[in-house]
């Protein structure tokens, strides 16, 4: 299980990264998804552009009410509190349950999000926020709403000549409630159903249902999931997904209900 041969380049700045991309290189951040695929020869890029040393690739900055997370920020950094406040606590809880610590130390939020594996954690969580992905292309930065970023399985709104530079999320006010539930039989396993529910005071409740071998479903008005008996609403949402194996449908319903319950009980 050794990768096919490739050339390796480490761009020093973003324009150089774009140039490599234009030349057919595959962008790599932490390499925790691409690495295994390359070892299995499921991915055979002729060239790899390692983005990890780009200026500003990793790191978190807060400006006003917006938190900008560099695409190269590792899951472990987020787990360890790189993002401040309530938002940070929510993201830390998600990060802690991604794969294993040794993978989180290398894997990045931007790499995972742009890889767009339907079972991945950030794919299932980021679209719930009213935030934006910051793409960088030949024309400079472009903003893509997070809930429009994922276009399909392993498919995003990034143009072939664009890279994901950062994720911008709104800081969350006090009183925000959060629920997140995913079904893994063991830590690190790919989720078989994930749901999250975000209730920001004064805004419609939002939810995401994901990890069902389909792109994540964003539910823009998910208030019914916060009710005492969300079963019917969960069943309605899942029925709308189209045919699922019965057990996956059951997990999907449970995910919505339990994420809703967690948000309801979130103080």
């Amino acid at each position: 299980m050794k990768p096919a041969a490739f050339t390796y380049a480490r761009p020093a700045d973003w324009p150089e990264a774009l140039a490599l991309l234009g030349g057919g290189a595959r962008a790599q951040a932490g390499g925790q998804s691409l690495g295994p695929m390359m070892n299995l020869r499921l991915a055979q890029p002729g060239a790899v552009a390692d983005l990890r040393h780009l200026p500003g690739f990793a790191g978190v900055t807060v400006t006003g009410a917006t938190c900008r997370i560099g695409a190269g920020t590792t899951h472990a950094a987020i787990e360890d509190g790189a993002v401040p406040g309530l938002l940070g606590r929510i993201l830390a809880g998600v990060a802690r349950r991604i794969a294993y610590r040794a993978v989180r130390n290398r894997g990045t939020i931007g790499g995972s999000f742009s890889h767009a594996d339907p079972a991945a954690d950030w794919v299932a969580v980021l679209p719930v926020f009213m935030g934006e992905a910051i793409a960088f292309g030949p024309a400079g930065e472009r903003r893509i709403p997070l809930d429009g970023f994922l276009r399909g399985l392993f498919e995003t709104a990034l143009a072939p000549d664009e890279l994901l530079r950062a994720i911008e999320l709104p800081l969350l006010p006090a009183g925000t409630r959060w629920g997140h539930w995913k079904f893994c039989r063991k830590p690190g396993e790919f989720s078989k159903a994930t749901a999250c529910v975000l209730a920001v005071p004064g805004a419609p409740v939002r939810a995401v249902l994901a990890a069902l071998d389909t792109p994540p479903l964003v539910i823009a008005d998910a208030g019914a999931l916060l009710l005492a008996a969300p079963e019917a609403e969960a069943a309605r949402i899942v029925a709308g997904l189209g045919p699922l194996e019965p057990w996956r449908a059951a997990l999907a319903r449970t995910a919505l209900q339990r994420a809703g319950l967690a948000a309801r009980e979130d103080a």
Partner: peptide, 14 residues
Amino acid sequence: AGSLADYLLPGATE
């Protein structure tokens, strides 16, 4: 089941 992500072996939590 072509990988240990599909062929599940019990870990310390199982």
